[in-house]
């Protein structure tokens, strides 16, 4: 119930009516890169489940081409601080904090995970984002 309320509040505050954005909802920082094919609404509501689901895929199956990888979240959603460098989660402007602080959600992910984007040279694998044709073919194949 509380969950629903929070989501409704968020939906009311952001997304639907930009005029209210300053007053009611958190000010979600803009991201770089392609938007999510499923849309913002879906991600707002489901990112925790996607993250949890995909973390098991990586952790247990070694599948590293996951859609919801924390590493990539913090890359596209990096927020630059005063020094022009991406901020860490200790900064309230961090993408993952704006809504959570607003909705009083606490996550422990960044106790272990780095909250800043990895430097390009360090990356082992770069996830490839499918284009719409590929996406459609894949969804058809899986019968969705």
């Amino acid at each position: 119930m509380k969950r629903l309320l929070v989501i409704l509040m968020l939906l009311g505050g952001i997304g639907l009516s930009p005029a209210f954005a300053q007053g009611l909802g958190p000010d979600i920082p803009k991201a770089t890169g392609q938007p999510h094919p499923e849309g913002n609404l879906f991600w707002r509501m489901n990112h925790m489940r996607l993250l949890q689901h995909d973390r098991d895929l990586t952790m247990h199956n070694g599948d590293r081409h996951i859609q919801a990888s924390l590493k990539t979240c913090v890359t596209c959603h990096a927020v630059k601080g005063a020094d022009g460098k991406p901020v860490g989660v200790d900064n309230p402007k961090h993408f993952c904090r704006v809504c959570h602080d607003y909705a009083a959600v606490k996550i422990d992910c960044f106790m272990c995970h780095n909250s800043k984007p990895e430097e390009k040279t360090q990356a082992y694998l770069k996830p490839k984002i499918p284009d719409s044709k590929e996406l459609a073919a894949y969804l058809k194949e899986t019968g969705q």
Binding site: P37, E38, N46, L50, D54, H65, K128, P130, Y138, L139
Partner: peptide
């Protein structure tokens, strides 16, 4: 949802 759990980057 399109397909939750579909790993879009799996191609």
């Amino acid at each position: 949802t399109l397909a939750p759990g579909v790993t879009l980057m799996a191609f």
